[in-house]
Every structure is written in C-alpha cells, then in structure tokens.
C-alpha cells in the first residue's frame, strides 16, 4: 500500500475536495430548479373526464358523417376554461355509431368529410392533401400514417355522449 503511485498529493487532495464541495453546492442550487422545470414531464396524465352529452339524439345520427361540436372543461395549470371539441359522427354499414376525431394524423390539421370535391366519400385534410376512407383509415400514399382517432362514446336516454379521442388498436 506504500506504493508511491497511489499517494495522493496535497494539491490533488485539495483539488478533489474543492471540486467536490463546489459540485455539492452547485447541485444543491441546480437540482431543485431542474426538478421544478421538468415537472410537467413527470406529472401523471390526469384520467380523462366523464363522457359528455353532446346534444345529438341517436335518431339524428345518419349514415352521412356530420360535424358535432361541444364544450369540455379544461384545466391548464392555473387556468380553467371551456374548450371546443369536434367530432365526425355517423352510423356505419353495421349500424354501429362511429365518432372520429377531426385531427389529422399527419401534422394535426383539421379534416373535413368530403372536404375536397376531388375525393367524394373521404375525409380530407387541406394542409397536405391527407385523405381517409369513410371508416377512418388513412388512404395509402397520402401523408397521414395512421387512421383517425376514435372518441369513446355511449348512448344514454337516446342521447350521444362522447369522451376522449383514442388512437385505434393496432394503428
């Protein structure tokens, strides 16, 4: 153990202890700040709210997709507000209710049913000509890489209730 190579010189010792002390002090200042800054990343996403009555009777849902707008409460940090939501709602060939999110899966623009005269019977996104078939799946070789998100839905007392938009299984 008396090997000269392992000896720590006075200079080295002071260097190490001062660096350590400086690092400790810097960490003491920085760590709370950094944890504070990354907090939004580490926060648990709040569970989606209850399904909301969107004011559309089940009988009024046709085979033609129609636009439905409603408001939901949003808590954004210290700011609470009602924000607008939109869905494309229709009955498919099996008579099942479908409610699609209008948010394009390419870059988040707003898709419209038959939004382009060139593509009837399709959802169309004007930003980059993204297209979706009526069942919401993206038309191959157009910009979107996934089908439109689907709203959770239920029928209660004959009225349509919608919740959060969810990506499809296996999309």
């Amino acid at each position: 153990m008396n090997d000269k190579k392992n000896k720590v010189s006075r200079r080295q010792f002071l260097n190490y202890s001062l660096t350590g002390l400086g690092g400790f002090m810097a960490a003491g200042v920085l760590i709370p700040n950094l944890r504070f800054a990354v907090d939004p990343v580490l926060k648990q996403a709040s569970a989606g709210g209850d399904l909301v009555n969107v004011g559309l009777s089940e009988d009024d849902i046709t085979e033609d997709p129609q636009r439905v707008d409603w408001d939901v409460e949003q808590v954004d940090g210290w700011y609470e507000s009602d924000i607008n939501r939109t869905a494309w709602v229709f009955k498919d060939e099996n008579g099942d209710i479908q409610a699609f999110s209008p948010v394009c899966k390419h870059l988040g623009c707003f898709v419209t049913w038959e939004g382009s005269d060139d593509y009837p019977d399709e959802f169309f996104c004007p930003c980059h000509d993204g297209r979706y078939y009526k069942d919401g799946t993206n038309v191959p070789h157009t910009p979107p890489l996934a089908p439109l998100d689907v709203y959770e839905h239920k029928i209660e007392n004959g009225m349509l209730f919608l919740g959060e938009p969810k990506p499809r299984e296996g999309a």
């Binding site: 700040n33 944890r35 504070f36």
Partner: peptide
C-alpha cells in the same frame, strides 16, 4: 402548491 420543488425554488 402544485409544481414539484416550487416552494424551494
């Protein structure tokens, strides 16, 4: 009250 370490910062 809501952000981690907010009181410290």
């Amino acid at each position: 009250s809501q952000v981690a370490h907010g009181q410290i910062v």
